[in-house]
Design a protein around this nucleic acid. Structure first.
Lengths: 352, 352
DNA sequence: CTGAAAGCGCTTACAG
DNA sequence: CTGAAAGCGCTTACAG
């Protein structure tokens, strides 16, 4: 360990023959500096290739930056949001040192009202930036607009509101993940195979679902493979309803060789397959590394899970906001997560 | 943004009725403090649940921590090491602010002598921590021992030297990735299929290769699927040699339905397949998201690439060393990267 | 429009 | 064994 060579505002001030405070004004583009002085200082800054010492900056300013996070709470229904939360907290731990604080607001995925209530609380908390899971489209739109009016940068996570003002979207490329799922199906398809696309959800997120299914279908039209694609929209998520409706489909279409579940409820189909006693288990592809899914992945009933590193999404959303707020780092409008393929063989090493 | 409530050594000093310097001595366990004073101060530290401000600490000390990195240079043969280097540089950019410097030492993968020479230079550079790609086993062993004697923490990246002292290993789980490759093959295998395992390399890294191939074979024995597995060890890496030897194999074994290349040279097999005019293209699986491979992935000749996020390996190695040296964060002995499956359909979103 | 000075929470000589 | 003081590179009132 050796000593740093010294530098900084002091050196700039000396060379420009001005006070440090003036240099500071120029660096931060604050008013109250004559154009001439400003130019002189900027020239020196460029010459020196000056990089401000953020450590010193944050220490001296003593400000705390607060980030507000509005995401679903973990419920008995799904532990999906555990992962983003973990990532958010990991990020917070790393940057707490540097004066960043995270305030969490949870809403209930089954209750749009809770979203609105928490969104209002967040708005009043006077945070400096926002991470938002826009699960309820209309409500989220309103909230995003409010954020924009309050000039708070806002990052969408896990799903997007296209055409909505936001600093960035961090989440999966939906269409392409459906496209990939289709490709994976082809490894088991034969001449007279049929495909079954299943969506099991009480309501909403129709946007997400549509994108995925369109990607799925497009693969086959792109490759002129015209297997019949059957759809099952199951709105009651309890197992007996799911089982009943699946049974109907399989009775009507015995040659279903692949099942694609376009959200995280593949486990429900797996459970059905486990007990249905079909002559041949169809390929089963679903989404998300939630515990119920991974169990069936391990037991071989689910063949592929398509995943998008939700923990990293959470981590990245916080870090992006931090970099933007503190260092003014430019932010990509869309940050697409990779489309991960998780199987029984690689699941132990998967980092969700 | 609101003001932090104030705290710190000053408050401790006030309460203990001592000078700040004394508090500092206790915090850092430095000698020259009476037991009585030490206890008094420690008690107050505990009461206050005092957390030192690293920002201020690093700023005041003005020390620079230097990390030495010893990895292969990018050659015409392969651009694999571009990715870890990118990750290393990204990490450096993020923590340069905090007084960390990275010094790079490159060696030539074709020349063990260059490894030794650079290792010696690194040893003399008096760095505080080391990242090492132990490509040459014996030479790397010696170097690792020297690092240990010099009490420099050392992280292995991309491949491991088991039973060698190191702070951590960051890299792929080799056996398991071979196991996964085998599973992927099964989707195209039929009754009389044969498998071809190819290794194209001038020499060494036999350890890596063996682990992978063992994983590959174990899958089939685990599942009692006894397809004939043919091996091709190709030691001349120029295309005509590769093509000739592959042609021999395919002539002798027309029912090869899957080819597994256990290192990053699948592109060479792809090129062969492109011109060989086989009656049916076998499934082709290889390793690593290098540019030649991704081209053949896009054109459909390579079906799956197994990848281990080399950029992240580089990034993580630096960050781990940083956290360890600056914050004394505990470090996991082995950090296995996930086993990523990259196909034509998800390659655009892959983050190498 | 500009500058002198105090201070952020620590570390580091130096003096006693 | 202990303390007073300067300083790390910035920011922030405040004065002019």
């Amino acid at each position: 360990m050796k000593k740093k060579e010294l530098q900084g505002v002091k050196e700039i001030a000396r060379r420009a023959n001005v006070a440090i405070a003036t240099v500071d004004r120029v660096i931060h583009n604050r008013p109250g500096v004559s154009e001439k002085t400003r130019e002189k200082i900027n020239k020196i800054i460029a010459e020196l290739n000056y990089q401000p010492n953020l450590l010193a900056s944050r220490l001296a300013s003593g400000k705390i930056i607060t980030l507000g996070v509005l995401i679903p709470s973990v419920t008995e229904e799904t532990d999906f949001w555990e992962a983003p939360l973990r990532g958010i907290q990991r990020a917070e731990n790393e940057i707490r040192q540097y004066g960043i604080k995270v305030e969490l607001f949870f809403f209930d995925l089954r209750d749009p009202g809770s979203f609105v209530a928490q969104a209002n609380r967040l708005l009043e908390a006077s945070v400096d930036g926002i991470v938002l899971a826009p699960a309820f489209i209309d409500e989220a739109r309103k909230f995003a607009t409010a954020c924009q009016q309050a000039r708070k940068p806002c990052i969408f996570i896990d799903s997007n509101l296209p055409d909505q003002p936001s600093l960035s979207y961090i989440g999966p490329p939906l269409f392409q993940s459906g496209y990939l799922a289709a490709k994976l199906c082809t490894y088991v398809l034969r001449d007279h195979s049929k495909l079954l696309v299943v969506n099991i959800a009480t309501a909403m997120d129709s946007y997400t679902y549509k994108e995925i299914e369109e990607g799925f279908r497009t693969y086959f039209t792109d490759h002129r493979q015209h297997y019949p694609i059957i759809r099952a929209d199951i709105h009651q998520t309890d197992f007996s309803s799911v089982a009943r409706q699946l049974q109907e489909q399989f009775d009507a279409n015995p040659s279903i060789d692949a099942v694609f579940v376009s959200n995280s409820r593949a486990f429900s189909v797996a459970r059905f397959l486990e007990s249905a006693g079909l002559p041949r288990k169809p390929l089963l592809i679903g989404y998300d590394f939630v515990s119920e899914n991974t169990r069936y992945l391990a037991s071989g009933l689910i063949d592929f899970l398509i995943c998008h590193q939700p923990e990293d999404q959470g981590y990245r959303s916080i870090m992006t906001l931090y970099q933007f707020l503190v260092f003014s780092t430019p932010v990509a409008k869309d940050y697409y997560m990779p489309i991960d393929i998780v199987t029984r063989e690689n699941q132990t090493f998967y980092r969700n």
